[in-house]
Nucleic acid binder design. Structure first.
Lengths: 207, 207, 207, 207
DNA sequence: TATGAATGAGGGTTCATTCAT
DNA sequence: GATGAATGAACCCTCATTCAT
C-alpha cells in the first residue's frame, strides 16, 4: 500500500450523499459519455433516488461542472505539492511535475478521461470557470518551462508550444493505459520525464 | 488554391445523397457529440428527410462507423502518398509523414476531432474494424520508427512508445488549432517534425 | 336536428389527426385546466400516441394557442354571419349579435369555458396574437354600440363600458349553463338580448 | 389612509405563519394558477420552509380551500356591513351592496381573480363547503332583488337571473381593472350601480 | 413549530427507428 | 430512393408529500 488515494474517487465533501453522487457521475460519464449517461444511472450508482440528485445539483450540466472542478482541483493540488518539494532548477522541477502528472493520470485514469472528453459539454459560466481553473493548473508547467528557457536549461525554439505538447501527451496516456499493461506507473513516469526534457531540448539523463 | 481537399468534406461516393449525409453527420457529431446529435439534425444538414437516412445507413451507429472509416481512409491515403514521395532514410521519411499528418489535422480539423472523440461510441464489429484500420494507418509511423531505431538514426530507448506519443501529440493539435491563430500550417508542421525527432532522439536540424 | 355544429367540436382541418388532437386538448384543458391536463391525456383522448402530438404541435403551449385560435375563429364567424343577416338599426343588429353569442356559448360551452379560463397560460407572441384576434371579434359589438350611441338609440352614459359588461355577462353564462336546466337556449337568448338593451338604456320590448 | 384593508392581504389569524402562508398562496395561485403554482413557491413567498407548510395545511388542496374561504368571508363581511348601513328600500340597499362589491373587487383584485378562477380545483367536501358559503354571500343580493321585485321597484321579468348577471358582471371587473386605468374606484361603483338598476329595470338616477 | 433530506409518480419533450406510400 | 406519419422508450426535471430530527 501507499498513500495515494484510491482510483477515481472524488474526495468526500461533507454533505451526505454529495461524494457518492459525484463519484457515480464520474463513473457514468466515463462509461457512456455525458450525453449517453442518464441521471437515473447516476442515481443508481450513488445509491439514492433520481429526484434526490436535484437536491444536490440543480442540473445534469452542473453536476458535470462539479465533477470536472473536483478533478482539476485534485490534479492541481498534487502538482503544487510535487513542485513544492522539488529542487530549484527547471529540469528537476519539470521532472517532478511530470512525474506527479503521470501519477495522477495513472491513479485517476477515469477522472482524467472524463476531464478531457466531457469539457466540451459545459456551456456558459460553468465552462469559463473551468477553463480558468485549468489555465491556473497548466501555468504550473508553463512557468517552469519559461524559467528553464530563460536560464538556458531548455534550448527548444518553441518553449510554450512544447509545454502544451507535453501536457497533451501526458494526459492522453489515460486513453490507453492499462494497469496490467506492459508499462508500470514508474516506467511511464520515467519515459514521460525524458520525453518532456527531449521536447524542450534540455539535458537528457544518460541511458 | 492548392490541391488539398476542402476542409472537412468527405469525398463523394457515387450514391446520390451519401456524401451529403456523411458530411452532415460529421458536422453534427462534431458539434454535439455522437449522443448529443440527432438523426433529425443530420437529415436537415444533408438536405434530405429523416427516414431517407435509413436507406443509406441502417442505424446511427453505422453512420458513425462509416464517417470514421472515411476519415481514416483519407488520412491513410495522405500519409502513404507523402511517405512514398520521401527519401530513404528514416529521418526524412518521418519528417514527411509528420508534415502530412499535421497537414491533415489542420485541413480536416473537424474530422480529426470527431475521429478522436467519438470512436468510443462504436461497438462490436464496427469498432474492431475501425481499430484494425487505424492500426494499419499508425503502422506507417511505427515502421519508420523501427527502421530508424534499427539504423541508429533514432537513439531513444523507447522507440515504439515514443511513436505513440508523437501520434497523440499531433492529433491533439486539432483540439486547439485555429486557422487565424498564431501558428500557421507550415509552422505547425515544422514544429512537430522537430518534436518528433526530439522525442525519438534523432538528428535535430540546426536552428 | 338543426344546422348547428355539434357541441364542442373544432372543425376538421385537413391534416390527419389534427382535429382529433385539438378536440381532445379542448376536452382535457376543460376538464383539468391547462396545467392540470397532461399531454398523455390529450394523446389518449385523440387516439394517438404521446409523441405523435409533437408532429402536429411543437409544444403544449402551442397546442393551447391553436385551440383558442380555433374557438375564437368559430365565434367570430358566427357573429359576423348573424350581424350580416340583421337589419340596419343598432338595436336589431345588437339583438342578433347577442343571440348568436349566447347560442355559441350554449352550443360550445366547453370551448367557451376553456377560452375564458386558459388564455392566461399563453405567453409571448401566441398571447398577443390571440388578444388581437379577440379584439377584432369584440369590435363587432363595440361598433354596433357606437352606432347606436351615435344614433341616439342607446342612451347609456357609458356605451363602451356597457359593451364590455355585456360581453362578460354573456360569456360567463358558460360557467353555469346546463342543457337540462331551467332555461332553454331560446330563453337565454331572449333574456340576454333584453339585458343588453337594458344596460345600453335602449328601447326595451314590451313584456 | 382609509379603513379598507391593504390590497390582497388575508387577515392575520393568530397562528404564527398562517397569514403569511395564506397570502403567499394567494399570490402564487394568482400568478400561476393552482396547478401551475408549487408548494415550494408558496413556502418561499411565505418566508418559511416547504415542509413547514404541512404543519399548517394538510395538503395543497386544503390550502386552496382555506384561501378561498378567507376571501369569501371578507367579501361577505363587507357586503353585510354595507347593506346594514343602507336605507330600507330595495334600490338603495342594492346600490350600497353593489358599491361594496365593486370596492372589494378593486381593493382585493387578486383575491377576486383567484376566487373566481381556482374554485374549480376544489373537490369533495371542501368544494361543497365553499359553494355553500358563496351561496350565503350571494343571497345578500338575491334577497334585495326579491324584495324589490315584490315591491314593484324592479320591473324586470327575470329578477333572479338578472341578479346572477349582476354578480358575474361585477366580479369580472377583476379581470381587466387597472389601478392606473381610465376608471376610478368611484366611477366603477357608480357605473355598476347604474348597470344593476338598468338590468333590474328599476329607477335609474337622472344623468 | 420548524427543518433538510428524501422519494415515487408523473410532467413535457426528444429520440432512433419503422412503415405504408 | 424518398417521404411523412407514427410509435415506445427514454430523457431531464419537478412535483406534493413524508419523515427523522
Amino acid at each position: 500500500m501507499n498513500s495515494r488515494s484510491p482510483g477515481s474517487q472524488l474526495a468526500d465533501t461533507g454533505r451526505g450523499n454529495e461524494a457518492a453522487i459525484l463519484n457515480a457521475a464520474l463513473a457514468a460519464f466515463g462509461a457512456q459519455g455525458f450525453n449517453g449517461a442518464s441521471m437515473r444511472e447516476v442515481a443508481k450508482g450513488a445509491g439514492t433516488s433520481l429526484s434526490n440528485l436535484y437536491n444536490y445539483f440543480p442540473s445534469k450540466s452542473h453536476l458535470l461542472a462539479e465533477v470536472l472542478r473536483h478533478v482539476n482541483a485534485e490534479l492541481e493540488a498534487r502538482l503544487r505539492r510535487a513542485v513544492g518539494e522539488a529542487g530549484d532548477d527547471a529540469a528537476s522541477r519539470l521532472r517532478e511535475a511530470v512525474r506527479a502528472y503521470v501519477g495522477f493520470v495513472v491513479d485517476e485514469q477515469l477522472a482524467m478521461l472524463v476531464s478531457t472528453a466531457e469539457v466540451r459539454y459545459l456551456r456558459g459560466e460553468d465552462r469559463e470557470r473551468l477553463v480558468a481553473a485549468r489555465d491556473r493548473t497548466q501555468s504550473i508547467f508553463t512557468e517552469i518551462v519559461e524559467q528553464g528557457a530563460a536560464s538556458g536549461e531548455f534550448r527548444t525554439p518553441y518553449p510554450l508550444d512544447a509545454a502544451r505538447a507535453i501536457l497533451t501527451m501526458i494526459s492522453s496516456v489515460a486513453t490507453w493505459y492499462r494497469p496490467d499493461g506492459r508499462l508500470s506507473r514508474g516506467q511511464l513516469s520515467e519515459q514521460h520525464a525524458r520525453y518532456a526534457l527531449a521536447l524542450l531540448e534540455g539535458p537528457l539523463p544518460h541511458r
